[in-house]
Design a protein around this nucleic acid. Structure first.
Lengths: 338, 338
DNA sequence: TTGAAAGCGCTAACAA
DNA sequence: TTGTTAGCGCTTTCAA
């Protein structure tokens, strides 16, 4: 087998230097003379030498591998984040080890990550159980939760200001004259869904209103459709719905328009959260709240890499501002009279 | 630093066996007595031992790492594929090293992959230059091109039957009574776009028709919008458009309905290719051709893993059947008279 | 079935 | 600046 067969020893022999000289020539900042470096580089090029990152990882204890864990990629928010995060990590000289998880096998997946000596972990879905968090901590591997957090856990997290974003949504809907406002949650145990609901409640309360109803969509397309049918199936129809994320909001809009023959926003207003690309598409034109994926990714990467490079793991929580994006799926507030 | 500090030596000492016994206890199919294995496993559990996959990779020459290269994740076809492929690979005991590329830095990215001793490469976008292909071949690393191919290259590939799928689309449009049919290409140099165009031409020719016009969308949302404006801006408006993929088709539909105030399918029919999830959403309800992502992923993984495990690299080309999916974005053929 | 010993390809002291 | 020398944690002969 021709398994990457050319080694630093081969290059050394060819360049008439020691094997460590070869190593140095390929280590930025090592002390080599220009002459030696050139000799080595030339020999390396002739032989087609490529440093073995695995061997390097083993001896140096630095794999430059970051694990990213995601549960699903059908909500466009995550592909966008994954793309940005991979690029950001690559730019800093790290490689991404990607893991897909199901609710069940998360333990195994984290074991695999640790076996591969990853230097850091980003969990973009599925929350770390406390035992796994402890295990990561014991190996000194920093972890960042992305778009979620666990209040009781010492794990760092990056989120948008879900409470404030949802609060703005509530004010916007109230100003639009809506009176029967309902909410469709993601998962009951998701910090993101809970915060969005709490902020929404708070905003409504500030306007002297309360939620007219609620249901749970489980972050899935079908679940959201069921929730919509449930909330809009009765006599006393809501006049606005806040759906915990855009992905579910599209499904809700489909049910409202397709099955229930309601017009949006004339008969009912729909607002979401995330501002995924499809929200801007004319077919949905969804009023929503932007989660700033770019800054969120930057924050996650900075927090992680800083902890990796300084070998200190501590809890950091970044909360980035969220911004209301008014499009056409919700009735607009009337301009002030007079 | 507590860097995964417990090693097989530690476990060996604790279990009162040799270090190689520990290795064997963790190698499926190695010859160890049940008694020894149990002793080792118990000791390992007590110490929290986790085999070091990096060290294992180094000595065995098997990293169990597969690189997946993608250029963008905003066309939903790719996230879906990435998710399925990661799961399939994980199920077979391989891990995914994810690389995002730009047109420019592809060489560097492939170098990185090779440095990490990946055992195989999937290129889900961006085609391998011939020099890179040669480099991979020289290290014995199998490569599979996904949803693309290079006729002159010895690299394996997996595609759907783009020619036949597009041919069916042509017949469908002809049967629907369309007479001014245009095409919006992806990239001119993409095998997928070229095959779809060729199949479409062929189908039209079989019906005694020819293309009424064409433009290029470059696979981007904005590019597709421009192409739509160009083709539909003149007096002699097309009555149907085949867009080379769904992602661009959504953009085209937005322009047609939003800017040009055309009704779909009453004024103009739109068909796409891929059948991404959004194509089924009521807001678009796009008639398209299904690329069977599941079977395509299975084929790609089988081809790759077979070559990895048998250490033979040869060119294999899988072409999976594509199927027309009739939804509501194109006028339907009239039922035969009589 | 088991243990001893020899490395995988490289980095990191340590001398020179 | 350079070469020599130890290993990193593991798998894999080879004998016993």
């Amino acid at each position: 087998m021709a398994k990457g067969s050319v080694t630093s020893g081969d290059v050394a022999r060819r360049a008439n230097v020691s094997q460590s000289a070869v190593s140095r020539a390929f280590s930025p900042g090592a002390s080599v003379s220009d002459q030696t470096r050139k000799r080595v580089l030339d020999a390396a090029k002739e032989l087609g030498y490529r440093p073995n990152a695995i061997a390097r990882a083993m001896i140096s204890g630095r794999s430059r591998l970051i694990a990213i864990l995601v549960a699903y990629l059908d909500n466009q928010f995550y592909p966008v984040v994954l793309e940005q995060m991979s690029r950001a990590l690559q730019d800093r000289g790290y490689q991404v080890l990607l893991f897909m998880t199901d609710p069940g096998n998360q333990d195994q997946v984290v074991q695999k990550m640790l076996q591969y000596q990853v230097e850091g972990i980003v969990m973009a879905s599925a929350t770390l159980s406390s035992s796994l968090a402890r295990e990561c901590a014991s190996t000194g591997t920093p972890v960042v939760l992305f778009n979620r957090y666990v209040p009781s856990s010492p794990t760092s997290s990056v989120t948008s200001d879900n409470i404030e974003g949802a609060r703005q949504l509530a004010h916007f809907l109230d100003a639009g004259g809506h009176r029967r406002i309902v909410f469709i949650a993601g998962h009951e145990d998701s910090s993101t869904s809970r915060d969005r609901e709490a902020g929404f409640h708070k905003g409504l309360a500030e306007c002297g209103r309360a939620l007219f109803g609620r249901s749970v969509g489980g972050y899935s397309f079908d679940g959201a459709a069921r929730a919509a049918r449930e909330l809009f199936g009765g006599r006393d129809r809501p006049d606005a719905v806040f759906v915990a994320n855009d992905h579910m909001a599209f499904s809700v809009m489909d049910v409202l328009r397709g099955e229930l023959k309601l017009r949006i926003p004339e008969d009912v207003s729909v607002v979401g959260y995330d501002d995924v690309p499809e929200a801007g598409w004319a077919g949905y034109n969804l009023t929503t709240v932007t989660q700033p994926s770019g800054p969120m990714v930057e924050a996650a990467v900075s927090i992680l890499i800083e902890q990796v490079e300084n070998r200190v793991v501590d809890k950091r929580a970044a909360v980035l501002p969220a911004r209301l994006v008014v499009r056409g799926s919700a009735r607009l507030p009337r301009p002030p009279a007079g």
